[in-house]
Amino acid sequence: MCLVCIAFASWVLKTANPQVGDAWKAVLLANVSALSAIRYLRKYVKIEAAAGEKKLNYPALTDS
């Protein structure tokens, strides 16, 4: 999902015509897409880190 948003933002910026007065809309859309992708990625990393930490806190019981 993150890569799709970043690719879309990149495409919008490449295809925007800077001579047109509505170019700010394309830039705004690209920025919102990129920020959404970054927020999603940060949330995913936090969830993965919490899951990894949880596994470390509960080691498997073994016969000694």
Rank of each mutant, 00 (worst) to 15 (best):
Y40K: 11
M1S: 10
L28K: 15
I38M: 07
V20F: 05
L28V: 02
I6E: 07
C2T: 14
Y58R: 12
K43C: 01
S10V: 14
V4D: 03
S64H: 12
L35F: 11
S10I: 14
Y40E: 08
W24L: 06
S33R: 04
A9W: 01
K54D: 06
R42W: 04
D22W: 14
L41K: 13
N31T: 12
L3I: 07
P59G: 05
A37V: 02
L28D: 11
R39S: 14
K46W: 01
R42P: 00
A60L: 15
A49R: 15
S10A: 14
A7V: 08
P59Q: 05
L29F: 10
N57R: 15
Y40L: 14
V4G: 02
Y58E: 15
W24G: 05
N17A: 06
A60G: 04
A49T: 12
G52L: 12
F8M: 13
C2W: 06
E53R: 13
L3C: 07
T15D: 06
I47H: 00
L28Y: 10
L41D: 04
L61N: 06
E48S: 10
S10L: 15
W11L: 15
Y44K: 14
L3T: 12
I47V: 12
D22L: 09
K25P: 00
L61Y: 07
S10D: 09
P18D: 02
A9D: 00
E53Q: 09
W11Q: 10
T15K: 13
E48V: 11
Y40N: 07
E53V: 03
F8H: 05
N31P: 00
A26C: 03
Y44R: 15
F8T: 11
K14C: 03
A23D: 04
S10G: 15
S10H: 06
L28I: 02
A9N: 01
I47D: 02
Y44F: 05
S33G: 06
E53D: 09
K43S: 01
A51H: 06
S36R: 03
T62H: 08
L56M: 06
A23L: 03
V45Q: 09
Y44E: 08
L35Y: 09
K43Q: 01
E48D: 07
M1N: 05
A60F: 13
N57W: 02
